[in-house]
Simulated assay, not measured.
Amino acid sequence: MADERARESVSRKIEKKPLALHARIQRDVEDRIVSGEWPPGTRIPFEHELTAEYGCSRMTVNKALSELVKKGLIERRRKSGSYVRQPEVLSAVLEIHQLEREVRALGLAYAFRILQSCRRLASDEDRQRLRLDGPAHVRHVKTLHIAGSRPFCLEDRLINLEEVPQAETADFSDAPPGSWLLEQVPWSAAEHRINACAAARAEAELLDLKEGTPCLVIARRTWNAAGSVTHVTLTYPGDMHTLVAQFGPSARLS
């Protein structure tokens, strides 16, 4: 019993232990980025400014900023300072490129066509996809991406207008919704669900496939500190997309 009380006492002391100063600086800067207070392209305060603000050494500030560079939230530019990065990668597990880049990497011309676009009150299914607890308005956009002369991917996207109100009037004529969101909206995390399916009649017609042709489906939900930003389902013909993951051995040996 005495040992258990001692463990509880140690646990409480650990929980109350304050953050190291470099960790607090890192957290404060990260919070401003993911909340949208500092959007992509913003120059964050110089090291000497942060040193004065937090009353610490240049080394402490440098350590905090180095961690943010590793997380992909900021980039350092020689003689210019540190800037909030344009978000290109949405997952630490799977690298996500804009669809245009995927197509051009194949050496093919890229094009896209908006098939459907509407604003509506979120349905039960919409709220489930976005994991919303209450009423909300969404923009629903379906896009066909084309590689050369062949359909490449069918995109079915919901955008939460409570978190991204500017998406209500975006016309997506110059850039498809996914590329537009990457440029406009801060993110902090994403979740992927990947599965295979047989193309239903509607998808098969749009992708120029025979009904029942194997397809790869990637469902991705993206969110930031404020809440869900978007949910997208990407359907690829099975022979048009390859998932590649690079990894090393675990630090823990079994």
Rank of each mutant, 00 (worst) to 15 (best):
V164A: 09
Y110E: 00
A64L: 08
G238N: 03
I146R: 03
H192M: 12
R113A: 12
N224D: 03
G178Y: 05
D124C: 11
Q26Y: 13
S228K: 06
A225R: 11
L144K: 01
E191N: 07
P18I: 05
V10G: 05
E155Q: 09
L154I: 13
A189C: 06
A219R: 02
R101H: 12
W223P: 01
K13I: 11
D28H: 09
S117D: 15
L234I: 03
R131Q: 13
E162I: 01
V244Y: 03
L21F: 02
A23I: 11
Y236K: 01
H241S: 04
R119F: 05
Q86R: 12
A175G: 02
L130K: 01
L154S: 10
H22S: 08
A170M: 03
A196G: 05
S250Q: 07
V141A: 01
H231D: 04
H22Y: 07
R113W: 10
P249S: 12
R139K: 15
V29M: 04
L234E: 03
V232S: 15
H140M: 07
E125L: 09
R120F: 06
K71N: 10
E163A: 13
A202N: 14
L106F: 05
E168M: 11
V229G: 02
G238Y: 00
R43W: 04
E75Y: 13
L21I: 12
E125I: 08
D3P: 11
G178M: 07
N195G: 09
A200M: 07
L154Y: 15
L108Q: 10
R104T: 15
I146F: 02
S250G: 10
R78A: 04
V29A: 01
R201S: 09
F247H: 14
L19K: 15
P18Q: 04
A122K: 00
E30T: 10
L161N: 06
E95D: 12
E47S: 14
H192Q: 14
E88W: 13
R127C: 01
K79L: 05
V138R: 04
F112Y: 11
L108E: 10
V141M: 03
W38V: 00
K210H: 06
P177G: 05
Q98N: 12
L132E: 02
V185I: 07
K142D: 11
P176M: 04
G134S: 07
V229N: 01
M240F: 14
S91Q: 03
A245T: 13
L216D: 05
V103C: 00
E47H: 11
A189Q: 08
H97I: 00
A136L: 06
S123Y: 02
H22K: 04
R7S: 08
P214S: 03
V164K: 06
Y110A: 07
A136V: 07
R58S: 11
A92T: 14
E162A: 07
P165Y: 06
R131E: 12
R77K: 07
L108P: 00
L121A: 14
R120S: 12
P165S: 06
A175F: 09
C56H: 00
D3G: 13
H22G: 05
T143N: 05
M240V: 08
R85H: 08
R76G: 14
R5I: 09
R157V: 11
R101L: 08
L216V: 11
R27I: 09
R85K: 15
S91Y: 00
H137A: 10
H241N: 06
M59Y: 13
R7N: 09
L144H: 03
A204C: 04
P45Q: 08
L68V: 03
P40Q: 03
E125S: 10
R129I: 02
